[in-house]
């Protein structure tokens, strides 16, 4: 165990931003903290980073209070983007690197590596304010982990990135994981969380609705997503036992079942003399589970 939050509470007078939050993150793990806007994610990050003090509970790193760990072990990418607009890209990275105790050749090597990896070579000597939003975000991202932190917090790292840069970032996160960096991140894009996270915590108005492995979460719901490509009309599918909802997705139907056990009888019913091009039973996506748990849209 590396990071542990136990019964963490954050109160602002009569408003409770985070209530009895518990989760642990192991070394080298990618952990997702997801929730709607105002769910308490940024407050939780700030408490972990000792930028705000929790009202109750404990936050420890390898058993010691997080306050006591070397600050240079931490890396943080805030939700809202911002770097020094007047500073050149390379100077910016040198500044943040030096501030976190890096120097000389090691810092130069890291800067070269990440600038190359994020395809920023041509922008190296440009002022940050002249870069596109996506490139500014890449610079800020590199600045957050240029010093090789042991623990990295990324608050909405994917927002504002195009699909190509999103892939670059995903690969970078996976590379950091390979290097043993423990990563905690938040995202509104559930496909990214699903792709990267081993474990996650779902927050709703400061309360944890789930904390554990992604597979456990999916298992809670079971394989209730049935995709069928068939000649059977929608009206008949809706009448079948155990079917909660039928959606038409292009040329196929997506059925939400009450539970996994209804799949077999449905197969037997529709296969009776009907043509079935596709019959696939899956777990719900994280996006669907999230919407079900927190209720309504993410925004």
């Amino acid at each position: 165990m590396t990071l542990a939050l136990k019964h963490v509470v954050k109160k602002y007078k009569d408003f409770t931003a985070v209530n009895d939050l518990n989760f642990t993150i192991d070394k080298g793990e990618i952990f997702g903290l997801i929730g709607q806007n105002g769910a308490g994610k940024t407050t939780t990050f700030r408490m972990i980073l000792d930028l705000q003090e929790q009202t109750e509970g404990s936050i420890t790193w390898d058993g010691s209070p997080i306050k006591k760990i070397n600050r240079d072990w931490l890396g943080y990418l805030p939700e809202e983007r911002g770097i020094f607009p007047q500073m050149k890209v390379e100077d910016q990275l040198i500044f943040f690197g030096k501030l976190r105790g890096m120097n000389g050749n090691e810092l130069k090597k890291e800067i070269d590596f990440w600038i190359n990896r994020f395809e920023l070579e041509e922008k190296r000597h440009d002022k940050a304010e002249t870069l596109s939003k996506g490139n500014q975000q890449k610079v800020q991202l590199i600045a957050s982990f240029i010093h090789k932190p042991k623990f990295l917090i990324l608050d909405e790292p994917f927002s504002g990135l195009d699909p190509v840069n999103r892939d670059l970032l995903k690969n970078a996160i996976l590379l950091l994981k390979e290097k043993g960096v423990t990563i905690l991140f938040s995202s509104h894009q559930m496909d990214n969380v699903e792709e990267l996270c081993d474990h996650l915590c779902i927050l709703k108005r400061g309360v944890s609705l789930f904390s554990g492995s992604l597979l456990d979460l999916k298992k809670q719901y079971g394989k209730t997503k049935l995709s069928i490509r068939t000649t059977v009309p929608k009206s008949e599918l809706e009448k079948m036992a155990g079917v909660k909802e039928v959606k038409v997705m292009r040329d196929e139907y997506v059925l939400t079942l009450m539970n996994e056990s209804f799949a077999k009888p449905i197969f037997e019913l529709i296969s009776n003399g009907q043509y079935i091009e596709k019959f696939s039973l899956d777990y719900l996506s994280l996006d669907e589970i999230f919407k079900d748990k927190v209720g309504g849209n993410d925004e």
């Binding site: 980073l49 930028l51 600050r71 240079d72 931490l74 890396g75 943080y76 990418l77 805030p78 809202e80 983007r81 911002g82 770097i83 020094f84 607009p85 943040f96 501030l99 976190r100 800020q140 600045a143 957050s144």
Partner: peptide
């Protein structure tokens, strides 16, 4: 610019 949040971590 939120650069302060990054600074205040270290």
């Amino acid at each position: 610019s939120r650069a302060l949040e990054m600074l205040l971590v270290s």
